[in-house]
């Protein structure tokens, strides 16, 4: 067999291998997008209750104006469309979601000092929804992190790193719960006393 034929075969194999890796990368990135969508769906279930709670809370929690305004702004940020392909934008979106979750938990904690607010139907319903979707959020987060692990491994391990650079596929951020307390399932009833 001539050297040129062997070279052609090797080149063909390299192209086929590179394409297969490219397909795998795009598939994994789409998995991450899908998982990100699942997280958004679950978080939206929580955050959609926020406007009603804030409207009600403003009547009672006059000293917590800053917290309420902050939550409203965060919700608007989380609800805004974002580029799911851009890891930096996704990281910012996840950060905002995390901040909103923490803020909502703080709101419930502070609401404990306002018995009229605590017993209001809107807040009771929010409490039930919070507990109901907790398991789903944890599951969606695990799905997302699993998809990110698979993508990041493919992107960062040679020769995937070369193919990823050519295809402009970047590693994605994990969606982690930061502090130990937040790792616990949210028990609003506990927060609400």
């Amino acid at each position: 067999m001539q050297a040129s034929t062997i070279l052609l075969i090797l080149l063909g194999l390299a192209i086929a291998g590179g394409y297969a890796w490219y397909v795998s990368l795009i598939t994994r990135r789409n998995e991450v997008r899908e998982a990100m969508g699942s997280i958004d769906v679950q978080l939206r279930k929580r955050f959609d209750l926020l406007p009603n709670i804030v409207a009600l809370a403003q009547k009672f929690m006059t000293h917590e104006r800053e917290l309420l305004e902050g939550l409203t702004a965060l919700r608007a940020k989380v609800a805004a469309p974002y580029a799911k392909d851009d890891p930096a934008v996704v990281a910012a979106h996840l950060e905002a979601s995390r901040a909103l979750e923490t803020g909502m938990m703080r709101l419930f904690a502070v609401a404990e000092n306002y018995p009229e607010l605590r017993s209001a139907e809107t807040v009771t319903r929010a409490q039930a929804t919070f507990e109901e979707v907790e398991g789903n959020i944890a599951a969606a987060r695990r799905f997302y992190n699993s998809a990110v692990t698979r993508l990041n491994n493919a992107v960062e391990i040679f020769p995937g790193s070369i193919v990823a650079r050519i295809a402009n596929v970047q590693p994605f951020p994990f969606y982690e719960v930061e502090d130990a307390a937040a790792r616990e399932p949210v028990s609003v009833s506990k927060l609400m006393g």
Binding site: E34, A35, S38, Q42, N136, A138, F143, S146
Partner: peptide
């Protein structure tokens, strides 16, 4: 469905029509 528990993964292969529900 790829799960995090290596001991579980050694014993079972999981398939699901809903990735989030499977993890739920």
């Amino acid at each position: 469905v790829r799960l995090e528990d290596p001991q579980f993964e050694k014993l079972f292969e999981v398939f699901s029509s809903d990735q989030v529900e499977a993890r739920y």
